[in-house]
Design a protein around this nucleic acid. Sequence first.
DNA 1: AACCTCGGTTACACAAGGGGAACCGCCATG
DNA 2: CATGGCGGTTCCCCTTGTGTAACCGAGGTT
Lengths: 121, 121
Amino acid sequence: MLDDERCPDCKRINEVLSRVGDRWSVLVVISLAEYGTMRFNELKRNLGISQRMLSLTLKELERDGLVNRTYHPTIPPKVEYNLTEMGLSFREPVSALGFWALENLSRIDAARETYDEAVVK
Amino acid sequence: MLDDERCPDCKRINEVLSRVGDRWSVLVVISLAEYGTMRFNELKRNLGISQRMLSLTLKELERDGLVNRTYHPTIPPKVEYNLTEMGLSFREPVSALGFWALENLSRIDAARETYDEAVVK
DNA sequence: AACCTCGGTTACACAAGGGGAACCGCCATG
DNA sequence: CATGGCGGTTCCCCTTGTGTAACCGAGGTT
């Protein structure tokens, strides 16, 4: 049973998805794409995300080169986030996915109901 | 601190992504889109996925109406999977995402190296 | 003096993701 | 007779993900 049989692209796609494919990253990118520049607590309130997860998510997105972080050492501190060029290019496939999601949510719900009824029956 | 401030679409996008947005679902859809109809162990070998996860993933995809399951009661049993119409429509945004992933993997790696060096320094 | 704001970090706890191995029935192959 | 393949299911266990709550420092507000 060789692993070499597996499709080569899957491994790489898997790699990228495990980095930027989590829900919070996707939602942060969508928000930044829509509103441009946003502050930390602005994102937090907008997404309904916990402080901890937002902090972790933004750090990863910055590390991966999708988000710029600008720190203004004022009192109180002000930190602004916006998308890099790569972040903006990521926005296209992501918003396509988001659009599909909104379009098909009801269809998925309907399919689930049908399936669950058939199983119970 | 009201939750009502949060963007309304995020909640729904989040819902759909938490259903069909996991890595294995995405990879299964990509495989089925590329090869058409596939058998269980064919997918397993192709993706390098564990038997357990493939079983769970296919069951959810069938329940959500993205995948058809056809059982042939032969000996040995033969079970074939292929995409439904909705599954095929899902393939478009997914393959856009996959394409972006392949295009930008090296850029992400480069950004990570730069970031990590700057942090260590 | 007490408390709030901003942008985090850290500790703790619990849920979910996911791999490995064993088992199933049934037949073909060695 | 033993083994292997097909298409799963079930159990065990470890790793991640994610929320909650507390804390930080400096300054402004009440």
